[in-house]
Design a protein around this nucleic acid. Structure first.
Lengths: 148, 148
DNA sequence: TATTGTTATACTCTATAACTATA
DNA sequence: TATAGTTATAGAGTATAACAATA
């Protein structure tokens, strides 16, 4: 009977990426069923929770480029979720605001996200979740400190 | 002095998705610098490590649809990384095999992946990594058991 | 000139539906 | 008919470069 040597390096990247893919797809489905998508959800969260001064900050908060944000905002404006108007103080800035429909979608997606989170957390204790969150944060910090 | 109440539900999904996005982008860059991409890397790993009987199994292993796999294999064949030939035993089956260039790319990408993993793990102990891997696995199991 | 945002364009990954080849 | 794979087509998300508007 042979013993397979434990690999010197456990590929945590593989585990993380596989988990994230599975979780992300499940989350996609949950958001889609509620009429949304991940980018839209991220944008709605940012608009609701943090006071962004302009679209550049919004794009940074969501983690996408300005042109990509414009692309999503175009869709959201067409769908009646947000309005854009110029800031009278500085007419270069476009103020993005949620409409009633946007607010409503935010709440539906929040509800879907909470349900999804509950299912994902099932069987994990509070302290396990806290440990997980902290370890993930440390991983992210390590890779965020890129050379680029 | 007010105390902000801890949220009843820590959005582990948000933490996971943010971490995964950061890690995934960093990994993308590392693979791109070595001449690859995540789908190509996944396909190479599967070809090297698990004996897949046909392309359907390969697609399942990678987590994509058959047509999507065909798309990637077309590119990989054009790039001289793999060959496809019919199985004489069952001519419906196309046997996918790595070329020398494919082997070489596998090793380069493996090296990039290991480097990336090391950087990501920095400051985390073996047991912390093991804990993290186990917790992630439990999360993934929970969401994988979809209704759909 | 510098900043804010948009437009034009394109690339990657993915998917579904219809198709071919083989059994 | 059923199975293995490909082709055709499309859609979502992202990005860069060039541009317009404003300061």
């Amino acid at each position: 009977m042979f013993r397979v040597p434990a690999p010197a390096i456990a590929p945590i990247g593989v585990v993380l990426s596989r988990t994230a893919k599975t979780a992300s797809r499940a989350f996609d489905q949950a958001l889609a069923a509620a009429g949304g998508s991940q980018p839209v959800w991220q944008i709605l969260i940012s608009l609701k929770t943090s006071p962004v001064a302009n679209q550049r900050e919004l794009a940074d908060a969501v983690g996408i480029q300005g042109a990509t944000l414009t692309h999503h905002l175009n869709g959201m404006e067409t769908a009646g979720l947000v309005t854009r108007r110029r800031d009278p103080e500085n007419r270069r800035v476009h103020l993005v605001e949620l409409t009633e429909d946007g607010e409503a979608l935010f709440h539906r997606l929040a509800s879907a996200a909470i349900t999804h989170d509950k299912r994902m957390r099932k069987g994990l204790s509070e302290s396990e979740i806290a440990t997980l969150a902290e370890l993930l944060h440390r991983l992210a910090t390590n890779v965020a400190n890129e050379g680029g």
